[in-house]
């Protein structure tokens, strides 16, 4: 995303806070827009595995995700702006997840919920398990746990709201991800190199 360098604000944050103390709200369209967007995140109703049950629990009475404006779980990716990857992504499932991501309208966000979605988790050794959804889809928030408690998911959501509030209006670059295909032994390609590179291992000499 190429952004023009922001002009010096006419009113500083300190002045704005001072005005707010006197009962005057001075804001910008951008801020208002981000505030609204961050409190009406519509997740996709999309469950993969164990974590999906905790995702459902987060939307039920005790944890009540509606307090954060995200109770509207949409069945269609066309109407959703948050993909919660809740569970193990297998290689057989990975093309579908990428396709669902591609069908979601911009601006869109992704939460990798649980150890499996982050890295393969306990099933990392599996021949059919994708070692982290970030190999194919850009992830905004990682929520660790196996499965994460509903509170942890809510924490991830709050972090996502903070991230949204820090964004500025503009035309985001379309983030269409290439869909992997089934091959004879593995997916083809096994990762999206633009999104994910293996971490660099720093090793002592001779180790």
């Amino acid at each position: 995303m190429s952004e023009p360098a922001p002009a010096a604000p006419a009113v500083t944050d300190a002045e704005r806070a001072e005005l707010r103390r006197h009962g005057m709200l001075l804001t910008s369209i951008e801020e208002l827009c981000d505030w609204g967007r961050s409190h009406s995140v519509w997740p996709l109703q999309f469950g993969l595995a164990c974590c999906a049950i905790e995702m459902i629990a987060a939307s039920m009475a005790r944890f009540d995700i509606a307090r954060f404006g995200s109770e509207v779980f949409r069945p269609s990716p066309r109407q959703a702006d948050l993909l919660i990857v809740s569970g193990t992504v297998t290689k057989k499932m990975a093309p579908m997840v990428v396709r669902i991501w591609n069908q979601m309208p911009e601006p869109k966000y992704c939460i990798a919920m649980g150890a499996c979605a982050i890295s393969g988790g306990p099933f990392k050794q599996g021949y059919n398990v994708l070692k982290g959804i970030d190999r194919f889809v850009p992830v905004d928030i990682y929520v660790p746990g196996c499965p994460p408690r509903p509170e942890a998911l809510l924490h991830g959501l709050i972090k996502l709201q903070e991230k949204i509030r820090g964004q500025r209006l503009g035309t985001p670059a379309p983030s269409e991800c290439p869909v992997p295909e089934y091959a004879a032994h593995d997916l083809d390609p096994t990762k999206n190199p633009q999104l994910w590179q293996p971490p660099v291992l720093v090793r002592k000499e001779g180790a």
């Binding site: 050794q125 021949y127 070692k131 089934y182 091959a183 004879a184 593995d186 291992l201």
Partner: peptide, 24 residues
């Protein structure tokens, strides 16, 4: 369980899984 294009039989003892976890 596996996709139709898959060639191996993974529960055999001599199955070699794809080398796709880089570092842990």
């Amino acid at each position: 369980l596996m996709w139709d294009e898959f060639k191996d039989h993974p529960m055999r003892k001599d199955y070699v899984e794809p080398d796709d976890f880089e570092w842990e």
